[in-house]
Amino acid sequence: EPSQADLDALLSAVRDNRLSIEQAVTLLTPSSGGGSGGGSMDAKEILTRFKDGGLDRAAAQALLAGRTPA
C-alpha cells in the first residue's frame, strides 16, 4: 500500500509530466490488473482531475489513499 510520501511523489511526477497518468495508475495498482479498488473514482480519473486542476493535492491524495486496498 502506498504511503502518503509515495502518493505525494507520484502526484508531483504526474503534474510535472515526469510520469504519465497510465504509468501512475500501473504503479498504484500493481497486482489488481489495473482495476479500481472499488472506490467511487478510479485512480486514472483522480489523477486526470488532479492534473487538470479539478482536484487539489490533498484531495487527490485522500482519494487515492482511500481507494487503495489495505
Rank of each mutant, 00 (worst) to 15 (best):
E1K: 09
P2G: 10
P2K: 06
S3R: 04
S3C: 14
Q4D: 09
Q4I: 15
L7H: 03
D8L: 05
A9S: 08
A9M: 14
L11Q: 00
S12P: 01
A13Y: 04
R15E: 15
D16Q: 07
D16Y: 04
N17E: 09
R18K: 13
L19Q: 02
L19N: 01
S20F: 02
S20T: 12
I21G: 00
E22R: 03
E22L: 12
E22D: 12
E22K: 05
Q23K: 07
A24S: 02
V25H: 03
T26I: 13
T26W: 09
T26K: 14
T26S: 11
T26A: 15
L27A: 05
L27W: 05
L28I: 07
T29D: 15
P30R: 09
P30D: 04
P30H: 07
S31D: 12
S31N: 13
S31M: 09
S32M: 12
G33R: 02
G33D: 11
G33P: 12
G34Y: 06
G34A: 10
G35S: 15
G35E: 12
S36L: 15
S36M: 14
G37Q: 08
G39E: 08
G39K: 03
S40H: 11
S40C: 10
S40P: 11
M41Q: 09
M41W: 12
D42I: 06
A43T: 12
E45T: 05
E45R: 03
E45N: 05
T48F: 04
T48K: 14
R49V: 04
F50E: 01
F50S: 00
K51A: 05
K51H: 05
G53T: 02
G53D: 02
G54S: 15
G54R: 15
L55K: 01
L55D: 01
R57Y: 14
A58K: 09
A58G: 08
A59K: 07
A60Q: 00
A60C: 05
A60P: 00
A60E: 00
L63G: 04
L64R: 00
L64W: 02
A65E: 12
A65R: 10
A65P: 02
G66V: 08
R67V: 10
R67T: 10
R67Y: 15
P69A: 06
A70T: 11
